[in-house]
């Protein structure tokens, strides 16, 4: 009986795999394309000039950002964003580890950290402009002042919550302080740290734009505000689209790094689910 059913059973299975790929693609891209289509249809009949058709915006995207604007606006923005992310991640993890390791330091700093975290970072822009002028440093400081908190607080939590048996194991084998930090504390905290970095990235992107909208002469945020003031509506929308693309790019790069760093973590979860 099996000899008869096997070829028949294999056929649908191969087709099933295909169908699954197609259906997951449809699921992922279907709704965006449907919305785009609806938008395009609507914009051709509507007289509202604030919502140009998707094709106009795509055209504007190519015309506006490929060329000198890429060097004058996109690159400086990305540069400030990159520096901001690197500084927040480095300082957030380093400070979070130190604060997480020492209980007295944690108790000393916790109320202060809660207070600083509660301040909306954009209010630092006027202060930054006073102290640092309209400079790259000011913008990076604003990005860091917002993006660092999720990283810092998650690192503190992660470091603090190191498993007691793992710690006892390290103690009983007389593992040195540095080895303990590198092979126990940081890896154990890494899922929390990565969750913090993920939040930090989106905050950094928001603050990059906002810091450029206030008195600035370059950058994506500046350019979008400029287009808006000059009624260059399609160009404005194309800037927003570009920001979305930057966000997707960041998320993709983060996803790759995360999968590499947390391979063991995802592995355990897969084993537990199986």
């Amino acid at each position: 009986m099996t000899t008869h059913t096997r070829p028949i059973a294999l056929g649908p299975r191969g087709r099933l795999a295909w169908r699954r790929i197609v259906s997951s693609l449809l699921h992922a891209l279907g709704l965006p394309f449907l919305l785009l289509g609806a938008w395009g249809l609507w914009s051709t009949f509507s007289a509202n000039r604030f919502f140009p058709s998707p094709l106009t915006i795509l055209g504007a995207l190519a015309d506006t950002w490929i060329g000198p604007a890429f060097v004058e606006d996109v690159l400086p923005s990305l540069y400030r964003l990159a520096i901001g992310i690197i500084v927040s991640t480095a300082v957030g993890i380093a400070a979070g580890t130190v604060i997480g390791l020492f209980r007295w330091l944690r108790e000393l700093l916790e109320p202060l950290l809660e207070f600083f975290r509660a301040i909306p970072p954009p209010v630092l822009i006027p202060i930054g402009m006073l102290l640092l002028g309209i400079t790259d440093t000011m913008k990076v400081v604003v990005i860091v002042s917002g993006a660092i908190w999720p990283i810092l607080l998650n690192t503190i939590e992660g470091v603090r919550a190191t498993d007691s048996v793992m710690t006892e194991t390290a103690t009983s084998f007389q593992i040195t302080w540095w080895e303990r930090l590198w092979f126990l504390v940081l890896p154990a905290a890494s899922p929390r740290i990565m969750a913090g970095v993920r939040q930090g990235l989106s905050v950094a992107l928001i603050l990059m734009v906002i810091s450029e909208m206030f008195g600035s002469s370059s950058g994506l945020g500046y350019r979008i505000a400029y287009f808006q003031r000059n009624y260059l509506i399609a160009e404005m929308w194309s800037g927003i689209l570009l920001l979305g693309l930057v966000g997707i790019f960041l998320a993709t790069v983060f996803g790759l790094v995360e999968r590499r760093v947390l391979r063991w973590y995802h592995g355990i979860r897969e084993v537990e689910r199986a």
Binding site: D163, V165, M166, E168, T169, S172, F173, Q174, I175, T176, E179, F183, L184, P187, A188, S190, W264, Y265, G267, I268
Partner: peptide
Amino acid sequence: LVFQEYGRSLYPWLTVRGNVDLPLRH
């Protein structure tokens, strides 16, 4: 020491070899 809770005593981010090797590093 060999602990009862092997799941919490071994470090999941290290390989088997890495776990055995870690106490020898110093």
